Measured scan of single mutants.
Amino acid sequence: MIVFVRFNSSHGFPVEVDSDTSIFQLKEVVAKRQGVPADQLRVIFAGKELRNDWTVQNCDLDQQSIVHIVQRPWRKGQEMNATGGDDPRNAAGGCEREPQSLTRVDLSSSVLPGDSVGLAVILHTDSRKDSPPAGSPAGRSIYNSFYVYCKGPCQRVQPGKLRVQCSTCRQATLTLTQGPSCWDDVLIPNRMSGECQSPHCPGTSAEFFFKCGAHPTSDKETSVALHLIATNSRNITCITCTDVRSPVLVFQCNSRHVICLDCFHLYCVTRLNDRQFVHDPQLGYSLPCVAGCPNSLIKELHHFRILGEEQYNRYQQYGAEECVLQMGGVLCPRPGCGAGLLPEPDQRKVTCEGGNGLGCGFAFCRECKEAYHEGECSAVFEASGTTTQAYRVDERAAEQARWEAASKETIKKTTKPCPRCHVPVEKNGGCMHMKCPQPQCRLEWCWNCGCEWNRVCMGDHWFDV
């Protein structure tokens, strides 16, 4: 396979590697080409510095992935760790964990309700045991953590790749202090920090972006993250068709209702045909949960890209028209025109101005929308079919299609509260000796007794199943 190397943020060049090629071997190839010592090179990928003893497969490097290699003399205490030698983080029983690669970060837990604080980093599902597709590297999971809308060759929703760059020099040479644990960490600028490894760059702020994971991409090709779309790892039924499908869209209502993408497309087109989208002054033209839940309008309007190009163009047109109407304007009634106009409040005669090729020149009556006339309008008909009709959803289907309910059931079956801080902690095999993952707590306690870890627990039921 081919990976592209950008040395000291210059133009990239291809390097041929195998899945079992080590990072140090990659350094040696680059060092020979650039005429520099291999031990002064640092390989940066997806916000993480890659260790010498890791392989291309370990690092989730795919065909035509772009890695950054910078030349920086080692500072005291760094060289041993980078070589894969006596790194205290690798000691058996050590409590410190390697910062998780962005290629394996899962933010789907952050669609849980606000009262489930902490689960994004504490609760991990076991539903990723799908067998890898044919042709994928051994052991590589097909679980997708992110979804994007690819405006490039795909023109559809695709699995996405999370990447990070330095907000100062805009190069992907920043190593994160810690990985993101929720969508806010990724979507809110300057929320996460790190250290830029580019020479002479003092940058410390992280800037995240997404790429389409279905095809090789260049540095400049980015895609918009659709953070309401998630892999259906909890096997929730769709609120409309009641099938279990994946991926799904999880509405931001209190129940976190789930809808499959085909039904979401149908829901949007139906509402669009009836012009029953909601115009929100802050958000724009949007839709609420299909069950009509309060405070559930979709905030990231790129989710409506699921409509496809033709329907999305209609959505944008109707949204612009609705904006004009909300501002007190009118639409030209001549067939084939429909231009938005903003006449004076007491102006009865409205002319669709033909300047700049935008208007048709038609003069019409503001009251009856017919060709302009003197005197009273002959008839004014009330528009028919403008009443909002509820999208029919079966109550039982709505009850079963809740992301929140599956989460709470998982928590109930696989977790116990920490005796000190009461945060839910998952036990997935292993011994009875637990350690609270909350940095402010870190209590060592017994899963069996529910009390602080002691010699009695150690001698009596340390390794009970």
Score class of each variant (00 low, 15 high):
163 R>V: 15
315 Y>D: 00
435 K>N: 15
169 C>A: 01
373 H>I: 02
271 R>Q: 14
166 C>F: 00
243 D>S: 14
284 G>L: 02
284 G>D: 03
411 I>F: 10
416 K>W: 07
455 R>A: 15
94 G>M: 13
8 N>C: 02
170 R>E: 08
87 D>Y: 10
137 P>K: 12
283 L>Q: 09
450 G>I: 03
355 G>K: 09
12 G>R: 05
38 A>G: 05
144 N>D: 04
410 T>H: 10
198 S>P: 02
438 Q>L: 05
249 L>M: 09
322 E>K: 04
429 G>R: 12
110 S>R: 09
156 R>L: 06
259 I>Y: 01
7 F>P: 02
57 Q>C: 07
286 S>P: 02
420 R>M: 14
182 C>Q: 08
361 G>S: 07
2 I>W: 07
425 V>N: 15
441 C>M: 01
215 H>D: 03
396 R>N: 10
57 Q>G: 13
8 N>D: 07
100 Q>H: 11
441 C>H: 00
189 P>Q: 07
111 V>T: 14
424 P>D: 12
230 A>N: 11
380 V>M: 09
224 V>P: 13
263 C>S: 00
360 C>F: 02
313 N>H: 13
105 V>R: 13
172 A>L: 07
455 R>Y: 15
27 K>G: 01
357 G>N: 14
199 P>C: 07
136 S>M: 12
269 V>D: 03
208 F>E: 00
225 A>G: 08
93 G>K: 10
166 C>H: 00
185 D>S: 02
19 S>M: 10
292 G>S: 08
203 G>R: 02
333 P>V: 04
321 E>D: 08
248 V>Q: 02
164 V>D: 03
87 D>T: 11
417 P>N: 15
189 P>E: 07
111 V>M: 13
347 Q>F: 07
103 T>C: 11
398 A>R: 13
306 I>M: 08
123 L>D: 15
246 S>I: 00
385 G>N: 09
258 V>S: 05
418 C>P: 00
238 C>D: 01
104 R>G: 15
245 R>E: 04
409 E>F: 09
268 C>I: 05
66 I>S: 06
396 R>W: 08
22 S>P: 13
368 C>Y: 02
424 P>F: 08
421 C>K: 00
67 V>D: 01
17 V>Y: 03
190 N>D: 11
281 P>A: 09
413 K>S: 14
146 F>C: 04
162 L>M: 10
71 Q>M: 07
31 A>V: 01
